[in-house]
Design a protein around this nucleic acid. Structure first.
Lengths: 184, 184
DNA sequence: CTAAGTGCAAATGTTTTGCAGAATC
DNA sequence: GATTCTGCAAAACATTTGCACTTAG
């Protein structure tokens, strides 16, 4: 669980090779810490111990997270790897500016982040019952968005879509042996 | 300025007649205040002077707004039509539950609301330069979402999409007479 | 060395809440 | 007439900031 693995559950059929439009000049092999250092350099900023601890933590898996979770995990450490609340907030902003993270949603009054580096473009389906986030590749959505935007003279840079409803598991009838289902 | 008029600026080309799918059992002629009273009744709640003042204010035009704007407009009145901050927040939650309002975005740390009653389904393009919100009818988007969701066994209830980029005005080259445009 | 970064505690800004008095059904 | 509402002030939040000290380059 140390290297970033793509574990999007359903999703990511591997057709649609072309879609590298807005990925820009990413070096897909650079570690998150390196990528981040690069960005910081362009601004005259520094890669510090705290920032690398945070980047490693954030990119150690592909789960969504919010600032508070990071605070729980990083601000209470007793070994020399503690990172304070302020630094966490400050670093999150930087990572967002660097294009490595993006806000995907707001839950319980907190901004929820996800990786925007080293991970394919996707949107989310959100199960209103079990709260699961399901990712799906969004190339067709992007194309449609492009088309609609063109009609409005709007120049798309990015989009964000959330689909709310019930996931497969939660919309299945609750009984183990389906006898007499009354779904309404 | 008493009746709700649809003033979405660009948008809403009037093809796509069929798209009344998720409008459900709305009585399109009920005034917002009446519609709200109906909802309150189902919960054993009451239609008060304050709530009707607020509903009238909110539905007097179709602009997007946040709690603070409402507070400015309603909590400082000196005539008998003042509504306090607390009541405003409480009423917004109710209107959201009633399905008459929904949160569309978050700007400057505040939730932005828009009408979800008496107004056609749409999504938003958000100009990153002038901050303008442009609405567009989203039937094709809904169809695509349906299709993708079906593939995942996901039962869609609603979606939300925001497209970020530059509006026509802001993406036009800054010169008054377009001579040599270099768009990339 | 020195500009940038850290941690702390205090400040900020939005939204929520407890409570006493007022109003609806 | 009882229950729900309102307005107030205070609380609860997440997030930001000022400042003295530390550290990367």
């Amino acid at each position: 669980m140390s290297t970033a693995t793509y574990n999007s559950p359903e999703s990511v059929a591997s057709h649609e090779k072309k879609a590298a439009e807005d990925v820009g000049t990413l070096d897909a092999t650079a570690s998150p810490v390196e990528k981040c250092r690069e960005f910081l350099a362009t601004r005259g900023f520094r890669m510090t111990r705290e920032r690398s601890i945070l980047v490693e933590e954030v990119f150690s898996d592909h789960e969504h997270f919010d600032a508070d979770q990071l605070i729980q995990r990083l601000a209470h450490r007793t070994d020399g790897r503690r990172v304070s609340k302020s630094t966490i907030y400050r670093a999150l902003s930087l990572l967002e500016e660097a294009g490595m993270l993006r806000k995907v949603a707001r839950q319980d009054g907190r901004d929820v982040y996800e990786h925007d580096y080293g991970y394919p473009r996707h949107d989310h389906m959100i199960c209103q019952k079990c709260k699961k986030l399901i990712e799906f590749r969004n190339s067709p959505v992007r194309e449609l968005v492009e088309e609609i935007s063109r009609e409005h003279g709007f120049r798309v840079e990015r989009h964000r879509m959330e689909v709310y409803g019930l996931c497969a598991a939660c919309s299945r009838p609750p009984q183990s042996r389906p006898k007499k289902l009354n779904l309404l």
